[in-house]
Each structure stands twice: as structure tokens, then as C-alpha cells.
Amino acid sequence: MKTFRIIGRNIRDAFKGVFRNFSLSLASISCITITLIVVAVSIILSYNVDNFTKLVEKDVTIVAFLDNELKDEQIDEIKDKISLINNVEKYEFESKNDITQDMMDSSEVFESIMKNWSEEENPIQNTFQVKVKDIEHIDSVAKEIKQIDGITLVKYGEGMVEQLVSVFDIVHKICIVSVVALILVTAFLISNTIKITIASRQREIGIMRLIGASNLNIRIPFIIEGLLLGALGSIIPIIATIYGYSTLYSNFNGQLFSPFIKLIPPTPFIYTTSLILLGIGIIVGMFGSWRAVRKHLKI
């Protein structure tokens, strides 16, 4: 009961603190708001880039063309060799007949041309479709496959894929670094703003110490105040995230420039992002307060 009363009083004091020193509180809140908006953009960008990378990874396939003279046992040998290569996730054999049939099925023009081909005339080759685990090292997998006897050609959209993936990777890393840097900078900014608030309440702290308030008694209302500032500061970024991203998603029909680059669907993505923003706001606010009030306590 006693603890509840103390907590209740602390919460009431924290609210009072926010409103009594409203201009300073507003400074802290704006500071958190601006940072969290940038953090939100970074999070959305980062997750989407991550998503693009995964989609690319899923789609990219190495196609290894086999010499048509090979016998079944030799094909099996190649299959075994491919299976032994590191970083190979899965592989599938597609015979020239299957491919021919697929092509004929897909278009009447193809069918009209291809149906008259004899076995010798058919230029289509047997292939292995290989998927890799780590797209960044697709190049070395392709090279290894190429060295296997009986493989005449290896294709996977070289150059373009690596470039795309490395660009995504850089964007992803920049996002993470900027989010961390922003959070740190804000924590110190808030700490300084709250320091000014606290300096103007030195008298109050002095009296509290004098009448026997423990350091925890003194510190908790300020930390709750920081929590409150953080929560208030995250309101606008959360609204901006929810409405902004949903609008963006529907305006672009869920894809960026090409169907290849799909955006993450808004639900539940925007809600998880909002929770992350609220969490960051609260933690940054509390940390800022804790750091600011520490200076005023002799511990």
C-alpha cells in the first residue's frame, strides 16, 4: 500500500513537473520528436532494404548449363559435386526436354518453331538451378560450379546482383549507425534540457534532502518525468509512421519502381515500428533524467 502511495505521488509529481516547467518540457519533447521522426525514417528504410535483400536473395538463381553429350551417371556426378559446394542452399536439375516443353507451353510462337526440332537440332541444354544461402558470395559459388567438368556455362546476372546487394547493405548499415548516433545525441540533449529544469528546482531537491528524502525518493519523480517526456515526444513520430507509411504503401501499390522491389506490408510493420519508437523515446527520456539528476545528488 505504502509503495503504491509513493508511486502514485511520484507519478502525480512527474505530471506536475512537466506542466509546471512547460517551456523547458516542450524543448525536451520537441527534441525527442525530431529525433524519433528521423529514427522512424531510418527504421522503415532499414527494414525495407533488409526485405529487398531477402527478396533478391530468394529470386536470384545460378543457372549451370550442362554439355548435352553427358550421360546420366555424369549428370549425377555433377549433382554430387554441386551439393558439396559451400553456401549452396538447394539445387534442382531441369532437363532440356522439360525446359523445351515449358517454353512451348508458354507461347504459341515458341511452340510453332520448337515442335519441329529434332533431338539434335534442339539447342536447349540440360541445366542445374542453384540457389545460394549468402547472396554476397554468389560469385565464388558460380566460379566453383564453372570449374566442374561437363558444365559449359554459368549465368546468374553477374555484376548487377552484387551491386544491388552491396548498395542495400551500405544503406542498411548507414541506417543502423545513424539510429544509434541519433539516440545517443538525443539522450545527451535531453539530459541537458532536463538539467536546466532541475537546476531551477535545486531548492526543492535541497529541501527534500534536508527532510530526509533518500536519493531514490528524489530521483524517481524526475525519472518518471523523463519517461513522460519521452512518451509525449513519441506521439507525433508514431502518428507520422502509421499514416505516412500506410499512405506511401498504397500510393506505390506496395512496390518501389519495379515489382522486384516490394515494400513491407503496413500491418503489423507500422505497429511494431511504433512500439520501437515509444520504447526508444521512453528509454532516452529516462536515461536523460537519470543522468541529469545524478549531478545534484551526493552519492
Binding site: 531548492r203 534532502r209 534536508l210 527532510i211 530526509g212 533518500s214 525518493n217 551526493k298 552519492i299
Partner: peptide, 23 residues
């Protein structure tokens, strides 16, 4: 320093400048 409150709770202090909360 962190335990000073233990003695403060047993002592009342009055100053020349009152030290009241103005608000």
C-alpha cells in the same frame, strides 16, 4: 552520502531563510 537520509529523518532543521517551496 547515500545513507544521510537516515539521520535526517530523526532531525528537524529550521533556517534563517525558512527554505519554503514558493509555489
Amino acid at each position: 552520502n547515500g545513507k544521510v537520509y537516515k539521520i535526517r529523518r530523526k532531525i528537524g532543521v529550521v533556517f534563517q531563510d525558512y527554505k519554503l517551496l514558493p509555489k
